[in-house]
Design a protein around this nucleic acid. Structure first.
Lengths: 221, 221
DNA sequence: CGTCGGCGTAGGGAAAGCGTCAAGACGGGC
DNA sequence: GCCCGTCTTGACGCTTTCCCTACGCCGACG
């Protein structure tokens, strides 16, 4: 199911979107302000963001930058400002589409579908082998009597859902600790070491939880 | 170079688009009606289509269907009709964006950039063959157990995203090290040598990472 | 034939980044 | 209130990566 994060506080819009998107098998989540939006997106990255630029707390353009710092999730901007300068600014900042209020709900839905049509759905298998152990991401269990703490699970989850792919330090920190921790690379070293101790056969020479110096970490199946 | 096929017959729009897109390194081709557009797209598939729905010969929506029958090339629709029903129809038919006339040329350019940016990230073309190795720019992996450092990735990234094209020394230095390093050409020699050692079959006689003496470097697929 | 500019290669010092140990801070359960 | 597991923070040695200098090669040119 495609997950859409809607950043807006108009109940009417939210209700209409929910109805229309549910029917097309989308899951709708909501954030009422920019701070909440960044936190929720970091905690559980959605497949698409619908972002109202008129937020109560922080400028909408900053939310775009905050997201683009670590993810390329598609962003559709809603705004009351119709000036082309505003549009260009938002699009250059990384937005994928810009819709001017007032708009028809059917048009927004059509644009959401147009954007998500391109996104490939990466179906995640829930059981993954790491060395001698087997990790079940859904049941949150590990074979061999290994027990992981919540933070360790969160970190491992991000890595295992992207097998073979390099995940940047910023991306990991944002996903696990939140956007304001993007420079606390120390946490990563700490918890990667713990995961290796618990999962790797030889923690000093990891074969699956690999470091890419200066860039990030990678799960090698 | 990204090739844009513009399907329209207004000389004013064509001229403005040509100027603005050339400056951003796009190549602009033109078709005045739907039949010509389909023929030209078929003969030599462009990277993006800008399609005016008000064509003299066939309905614009049919051009969309005609293209979508065999290609997923991004389509940006221009139209004088602002009704949401028209928009939904075009987007559902497979268009990626819908711009209502009259519009600012800067907005259209920004939307073109937004669409091509998304496609270049998610679409094909992220895997590139260099000699015996295959480089995945998104996952940051190289076949054959080759490992690259962050600076090497950065440099290779710029070259591989412009296959066959000469990249000046200044351009490379600015992209990788910053504008204040434009005269440190020995950095380039240093890191190009490392990339050749790691990727070329015969580093002394490179076949893909070529030097253009006095000018710059070129990636030859 | 010698000089010169541009290029490729090699190697070492400096700095940034990483892994590890250890201890303090915090919060929930008892 | 106390204990225990977990999360944060600090300190230190080690590795990787980067930056910089030096030198040899080659073709152009006078």
């Amino acid at each position: 199911m495609t997950r859409v994060l809607v950043v807006d506080d108009e109940p009417q819009l939210l209700r209409a979107l929910r109805i229309n998107l549910r029917a097309r098998d989308y899951d709708v989540e909501v954030a009422a302000d920019g701070t909440t939006a960044l936190r929720r997106a970091g905690a559980s990255p959605p497949d698409l963001v619908v972002l109202d630029l008129g937020l109560p707390d922080i400028p909408g353009i900053d939310v775009i930058h905050g997201l683009r710092g670590w993810t390329r999730v598609p962003i559709i901007v809603l705004s009351g400002r119709a000036g082309s300068q505003d549009k260009v600014e938002a699009l250059e900042a990384g937005a994928d589409d810009y819709v001017t209020k007032p708009f028809d709900i059917a048009e927004l839905v059509a644009r959401i579908r147009a954007v998500t049509r391109r996104v490939s759905v990466t179906g995640a298998g829930r059981r993954v082998d790491v060395g001698e152990h087997t990790v079940d991401l859904a049941d949150k269990t590990v074979t061999g009597g290994v027990h992981l703490t919540p933070t360790e699970w969160h970190l491992l989850d991000v890595l295992l859902r992207n097998p073979g792919k390099l995940i940047s330090q910023r991306q990991l920190l944002t996903a696990v600790w939140g956007p304001s921790y993007q420079r606390e690379t120390h946490y990563l070293r700490q918890y990667m070491a713990q995961l290796r101790r618990k999962l790797e056969t030889d923690p000093a020479h990891p074969r699956h939880l690999l470091t890419e110096p200066g860039m990030g970490y990678r799960f090698q199946p």
